[in-house]
Computed example of a mutant assay.
Amino acid sequence: MNDEQLLRYSRHILLSQMDIEGQQRLLDSHVMIIGLGGLGAPVSMYLAASGVGHLTLVDDDVVELANLQRQIVHTHKNIGRKKVDSAFEQLHALNPDIAIDMIDERLDKPAMLAASRHVNVIVDCTDNFETRFFLNEISRENQIPLVSGAAIRFDGQVTVYDPRQADSPCYRCLYEDKGELQETCSESGVFAPMLAMIGGTQAAETLKLLAKIGTPLTGRLLLLDGLSMSWREIKLKPDPSCPVCADSHHHE
């Protein structure tokens, strides 16, 4: 680290758990953020500000006026632009120190497996089950931790799936792939700060995984009720009959 980086990241380096070694780990890391909407906005800004050395941003959407109530990485003047371009501009302005790649299309499985092969963490900031199941498979096959978040109305949830841990469940353990009806923010609405709280938690979990500090949310699902401002924690166990990850668990 040069003098400017030591100053930029000094408030991290002052943390005994993080120190210079942890910050250097962040600088040496590569994170893929899928979705630059309500969750991807705070996640990308905190990871960029924190000095994650290499970010890959994945989104095929454009900025719309209705996004701006919560998608704080985008600005009014960028309405109509690709979200990856809009986010790149903001993140580069925040921290020109880091490398940022952009993918503005939906990748099929072979392309996504290749694009994520050397990534340290995948952050799922998407808003539909189909993509979440897809990213779960990518995470399992490439053995990359998946930091998962969701928020709608006044409710949010966040957890970490880590295929490197024998006792970690996967997304498919929790949710049946039945193509059930799903609600989206465009239909149900969402309270803007919920995205900051869940996205900020996703960013914190990502940084902890990269710096190898603290206890990750693996095997624990946090549920946030924003109206009463209360968190609940549910313990998660792998499903022994899960079609995605059952083979990888050690059967007693």
Rank of each mutant, 00 (worst) to 15 (best):
F129T: 02
P110D: 15
A111S: 04
C170A: 08
D124E: 09
Q90S: 15
S241E: 15
Y46H: 12
Q143S: 13
F191I: 08
D167I: 03
L55N: 10
Q143D: 08
Q182G: 02
R8E: 06
F133D: 03
M102F: 02
G156R: 02
D85C: 07
I100F: 05
A115V: 00
A99I: 12
P169D: 01
T131H: 05
I79S: 07
V119K: 03
T56S: 14
L39C: 10
E205I: 05
T159I: 04
A115N: 09
L207D: 03
I100C: 06
K109R: 15
D127N: 13
C125L: 12
Y161F: 15
M45E: 09
L221F: 08
G199I: 10
H118V: 06
A166L: 14
L47T: 11
S10W: 10
E4L: 11
G199M: 04
Q23T: 09
R164G: 08
N78D: 14
K82C: 12
E252F: 10
V31E: 06
V58L: 14
A66P: 02
T56C: 06
V62L: 08
F133E: 07
L7V: 05
Q69V: 14
S168I: 00
Q17N: 08
L107R: 02
M102R: 15
V31C: 01
C170K: 03
T75D: 13
N120M: 08
D167S: 14
K82S: 09
Q5F: 01
D127V: 13
Y175L: 04
E64M: 10
V52Y: 04
D127G: 04
E137I: 00
C170Q: 06
I152V: 12
A150E: 06
I34M: 07
D247L: 12
A48G: 09
K82R: 07
R8N: 04
T159H: 10
A66M: 11
K178A: 13
P240V: 02
A192Y: 07
D19I: 09
C245S: 12
G40I: 00
I122M: 11
I79R: 00
S186R: 13
A48D: 14
H30W: 04
Q202L: 10
K82N: 04
E21N: 15
P243K: 02
A115S: 12
Q143Y: 09
A211M: 12
K82M: 09
A115E: 12
D167C: 07
E130P: 01
P240I: 02
D104L: 10
L222A: 08
D167P: 06
H118W: 11
A114N: 11
L236P: 00
L91H: 04
M229V: 12
M197F: 00
I138N: 03
